[in-house]
């Protein structure tokens, strides 16, 4: 039912979403923590930048990424001088783009979780002479666990659902940048509706199950 190309696209999408989510948990946690705790005047500024992908069309993000990551852009100059080449048309490029694109889906649930905990548990931990790192991992992480799970699920699912950005900087290369959403688009354009149905139906089912799981978890606010 699924061709080798389709399977390759599914595997690639899974790899991309996993790697993106892992990166986002590492990058997003300190940002969310800072946003939840800071009284800095630039809090609103950082919060707004993080939330931009929620409202920007993927074409805007894709267009700027294509230019800044390209050989004449600032990031392109940097990656070239490091001997890494340029990022568009590579799997690494898709990961970078996806991290930007899915950033708010990870940062915002984490920020909400951290804010809900409040400063009290950390103060208590400090009186018990726990170091800041120690108290973060032994106090905050367990308390914010539902937030971490929500953030990971949303980050993963949103990356799977990515299309416009990948289309603009991916170059549609099998096993490197041709993810499921692009493969579906190709099938539809080539009028291969039967193949499109299999993948599109699978995507619909997957997304529904993810959200169902998310909303079925008791006692956690998912999203505001």
């Amino acid at each position: 039912m699924l061709s080798a190309v389709d399977l390759a696209a599914i595997w690639l999408t899974f790899k991309l979403a996993s790697l993106t989510t892992a990166t986002l948990m590492v990058v997003g946690t300190p940002i969310a923590w800072w946003l939840a705790r800071t009284r800095s005047r630039i809090k609103a500024l950082v919060g707004a930048v993080v939330a931009l992908p929620l409202v920007l069309p993927p074409t805007v993000l894709g267009f700027y990424l294509l230019i800044t990551l390209g050989p004449h852009g600032p990031v392109g100059h940097l990656t070239q001088s490091l001997g890494l080449g340029v990022l568009p048309f590579t799997f690494a490029g898709l990961v970078v783009a996806s991290v930007f694109y899915s950033l708010p889906f990870v940062v915002q649930p984490l920020q909400q979780a951290f804010e809900a905990i409040g400063p009290r548990p950390l103060e208590v931990a400090a009186t018990l002479r726990a170091s800041p790192w120690d108290s973060f991992f032994t106090v905050i992480v367990p308390l914010a666990k539902p937030g971490f799970i929500t953030a990971a699920i949303l980050g993963f699912a949103h990356t799977v659902g990515e299309f416009g950005v990948v289309l603009m900087i991916g170059g549609n290369i099998p096993e490197k940048t041709r993810v499921v959403s692009v493969q579906i688009y190709d099938h539809v354009e080539a009028m291969e509706y039967a193949e499109a149905h299999v993948l599109a139906g699978g995507m619909l089912l997957f997304s529904f199950l993810v959200l169902l799981t998310l909303y079925s978890r008791k006692g956690t606010s998912v999203w505001k």
Partner: peptide, 19 residues
């Protein structure tokens, strides 16, 4: 080979120097 969705996107890939 990198593939543009249509000929305009193909042009865009070359114009930006990525291809």
């Amino acid at each position: 080979l990198v593939t543009g969705e249509n000929i305009s996107q193909t042009y865009q890939f070359i114009m930006t120097g990525n291809a």
